[in-house]
Amino acid sequence: MTSTIVWVHGDCLAPDGPALRAYPDAPAVFVWDDALLQRRRLSLKRIVFIYECLLELPVTIVRGNVAAEVTAFAAAHGARRVATSDSVSPGFAAIRRRLAAALTVEVLAAAPFVPPDVPLDLRRFSRYWQRAGPLALQPTPPDAP
C-alpha cells in the first residue's frame, strides 16, 4: 500500500523531474492517450522518441484514457494522492480536473527559467524580453527546487 503515485506525462520526461524527485519510491505511470494520438496523427518517429525517453524512467507504461488509467493505477496501489509535474497545455489542465474528482492532485513545478511572480508583458516577445532577459541570464540559485 502506498499513499501517493506519480503521473508522468509527455511534457516532463526527465528522470529527475519534479514529481519523480519528490516521490522517488512512489509507483509511477505514463498513459499513451489513444484519442490524442489519433487526433494529432502523431508519426511513428515521435512515438519512438517518447518511448525511448520513457525507458529511462521508473514508470509503468499503459495506454487508453489518461484520467481513467491514472485513477485505476492509483486504486491498484491503494493510493489516494497523485503527484505530477506542471504543464501549460489545456489538455493537462483538463486531465488534472478529471483526476481531482477521485484523487488529491499535487502539481510540482520545474526550476524556473525566470523567477516566478515577476510580472511580464506578453504582447510581444520584445516587451517580454526587456524584463525577462536580464533575469534569465542569471544562473539558477543553488537552493532552487
Binding site: 494520438l37 511513428l44 518517429k45 519512438v48 517518447i50 525511448e52
Partner: peptide, 18 residues
C-alpha cells in the same frame, strides 16, 4: 501503433532520453 506506422514508417536517427 499500426495506424501511425501505416501513414509513415520512418524512424528518426535522433534518440530519445536524458
Amino acid at each position: 501503433f499500426p495506424a501511425a506506422a501505416a501513414r509513415d514508417a520512418a524512424v528518426s536517427p535522433i534518440r530519445g532520453g536524458q
